[in-house]
Design a protein around this nucleic acid. Structure first.
Lengths: 227, 227
DNA sequence: AAGCGCCAGATTGTCGACAATGTGCGCCTA
DNA sequence: TAGGCGCACATTGTCGACAATCTGGCGCTT
């Protein structure tokens, strides 16, 4: 068996559990973007003391889901076009780098696994055409695999632990369910092919384009909501 | 006056103060790399309770200076060639991106300020030829300015808050004081020129080379220590 | 009536103690 | 004597209460 990434380990402590719950609540909008976080209220709601709650809040700040000001409390981040742009600028670069490194460091076995994963997603996606949740989970899964394949712990930490919840938040709250689903699969396929060919430069390029396309898709969504 | 970056704000709370002290202690090696962190001991040493101390530890984990395992405690990170390589791989990309964005977003006034900063460093460096501390501080200052010039808050956060203490730790503990000082200044000059010309592509390239050169320099140092 | 300062309520930061978990030594067994 | 089990100790996780700080509204002054 391969080593499980720290971020994926099952919750052990109370702080871990409440962290996951609040993370989900924020990402899915149960706790509204921009709203104030009250420590006493959350403590009552999840039936624990403020100590583990504050631990959880510290980690939420780490993945940019909340912003804290000393002596003034925490607020859920507000989504904005500027924020989305900044986030995706970073993702294009970082995941491009991840691809380049994955082309150097992934084992043949790992590449085979990812290909099997894609085939699996493809078949299940063909069946449930409009369903966006599976696609999204699958998309994240693909990206996760590639990022882990880079074997760069700092890069893995930044992308998987710190940025991905925010990416998911934008996706979920803007309701990504467009016709990009099948296109994305082809792009994933091309990327893993480049990695399998050990062509890091191409994999980098393809991933940057893939994310840029995804960004344009979301921007379009935002624009439509604005009008 | 320009807005002060959150990371640079003066300490308000007890957790902030102890964080800065421990950060310095780890970076400068007062607390040895790889050693275990004892919460009760540090609490006594800094004369405060464990609550703010744990807050500080959470932030130390955030900037990769310590590693925590639930119910088992925290250890100072151990420096390694692999870790150094991973860190600099990331820096090359991220700071390259920062340069590209800075070329797009820095104001003429900000560029002028950075140039004045460089002239200032050059003159004071000419005077104290071998002194490495000023050079290092100046180098970090230059990089900070460029990063802030990118105007991408996520990028700024990752580089200034999460990675730079680690970079400093490698530099300090490996005793960077070689003859690269004057070369580095020329490279800085070339980078800010490219930014001033709004040539993002060139600025990106030059910064990547600058950091790659710095990395090779440190690797050399490591190699010498190994023999 | 508008603006400033002050007070009350609520919230965050900090503390010391208790509960849960992990660690290392000594003892017993084979 | 080597290996495994169990207990005592130390450390981390959690709790409830107190202190410091911020927010909003009232009354006073001009």
């Amino acid at each position: 068996m391969h080593q499980v990434h720290p971020a994926l380990r099952q919750p052990i402590t109370a702080a871990d559990r409440v962290l996951q719950e609040i993370q989900r609540a924020i990402v899915e909008g149960d706790i509204a973007a921009g709203s104030k976080i009250s420590e006493p209220e959350l403590a009552r709601r999840f039936d624990l003391s403020r100590a583990p709650l504050r631990e959880a809040l510290a980690r939420l700040e780490r993945c940019h889901l909340i912003e804290r000001i000393p002596n003034a409390g925490a607020r859920v981040v507000t989504l904005s076009t500027a924020g989305l742009l900044a986030l995706y600028q970073l993702r294009e670069n970082l995941e491009g780098l991840a691809c380049k490194l994955a082309a150097e460091h992934m084992t043949d076995a790992e590449i085979t696994e990812v290909r099997q994963l894609l085939d699996q997603h493809l078949s299940s996606q063909r069946v449930r055409e409009g369903e966006s949740y599976y696609q999204e989970a699958g998309d994240l899964d693909f990206h996760y695999r590639v990022i882990l394949g880079s074997k760069n712990s700092y890069l893995i930490n930044i992308l998987c632990d710190e940025l991905y919840f925010l990416v998911r938040m934008y996706r979920v709250q803007l309701g990504m369910n467009g016709p990009r689903v099948s296109r994305a699969f082809d792009e994933h396929k091309a990327i893993i092919n480049a990695i399998a060919n050990r062509d890091g430069e191409l994999a980098d390029l393809l991933m940057r384009r893939h994310i840029a396309a995804s960004r344009r898709n979301i921007e379009l969504q935002l624009q439509q909501m604005g009008t």
